[in-house]
Design a protein around this nucleic acid. Structure first.
Length: 277
DNA sequence: AAGTAGGTCAACCGCGACGAG
DNA sequence: ACTCGTCGCGGTTGACCTACT
């Protein structure tokens, strides 16, 4: 599939019926047109919206662009440990029901979660030579990965308690991908209306957002601490040697305190056969 | 500096569900 | 009951980026 701009036209000989459809990356101008049109007319009826905005895009494409990128409440940056934990838990429950899972992660899109699963989680499964949908891998996640996430959450909350300034830069490590995207995102704020009463976070508000999110997770979705009470999350199930190895590599650098994003080091020292499930 | 490999993620596609006519 | 248009979902692709050699 080419991601360059592709102009599509039908075979009609009637010039009035000629249409051109743009594909590929959205331009800043297109983004602004879409945002402006949605701020006036609201979401939905995407085909009509595309026409109204004067965009040479399908309604489908407009919907996707809005939901996955332009919508003002979309969160950027790495998934927090809490979010990762939720994804792991919900996926073990519902499988690849990405949109359903995304409903429990405010500000995250199904696309993002799907990408996370495919790029991070499945990678770990490959390294373990296991099918990511296999019971064995799911159990490995529950008995090994989740307890580690919980530990890290506790650790980072303790760090935050004692020195909140250490946390802020980590949370703020959520740079927009490039200037064009930054611009479109900024513009989305300019065009936001009261009817789109979304979070309009500035970068220095991210810490606050993090807190708000924590509360929403704990109050509405899954009480994170309760997860650790489930038997299969207990890190006590791990053998001492497993814990020691994991400990040595997990907490050996300051990055470990920053993010649980990279689990490679963790899995590196494990083989599925070594895991007592 | 140049080439390569692997990771990331925005965007596309096909398909099925649903509602209106 | 059928067709058609629209929408949403999950799977997939490929451009871009970064790290490594």
């Amino acid at each position: 599939m080419s991601k360059g701009i592709v102009i599509m036209s039908n075979n009609s000989s009637n010039e009035d019926d000629q249409f051109e459809l743009r594909r590929g990356p959205w331009t800043l101008e297109e983004d602004n047109l879409l945002i402006h049109c949605i701020s006036s007319n609201g979401e939905g009826r995407w085909n009509a919206l595309a026409k109204c905005a004067g965009l040479k895009r399908t309604g489908k494409s407009c919907r996707l662009r809005w939901l996955n990128y332009l919508k003002p409440d979309i969160k950027r940056g790495n998934l927090t440990p809490q979010e990762q934990l939720l994804i792991l838990e919900l996926h073990s429950k519902w499988g690849n029901r990405w949109s359903k899972i995304a409903q429990h992660l405010p500000g995250r899109t199904d696309n993002e979660i799907k990408n996370y699963w495919r790029t991070r989680v499945q990678k770990q499964a490959r390294q373990l030579k296991a099918d990511s949908n296999s019971k064995k891998f799911v159990e490995a996640i529950k008995s090994l990965w989740m307890p580690r996430l919980l530990e890290k959450m506790e650790q980072s909350s303790s760090i935050e308690k004692h020195n909140p300034s250490l946390i802020t830069p980590l949370i703020n490590n959520q740079e927009p991908y490039d200037k064009a995207k930054t611009s479109s995102f900024e513009n989305s704020r300019i065009y936001s209306t009261d009817s789109m009463n979304m979070l309009k976070l500035q970068p220095n508000e991210m810490t606050q957002d993090f807190t708000i999110y924590n509360n929403s997770v704990q109050n509405e979705c899954y009480h994170v601490e309760s997860l650790s009470q489930q038997p299969h999350f207990s890190s006590q199930e791990m053998s001492i040697s497993e814990c020691e190895v994991a400990e040595a590599h997990w907490f050996s650098d300051e990055m470990a305190a920053a993010s649980l994003w990279n689990m490679d080091e963790f899995w590196q020292f494990r083989k599925l056969g070594d895991i007592d499930i």
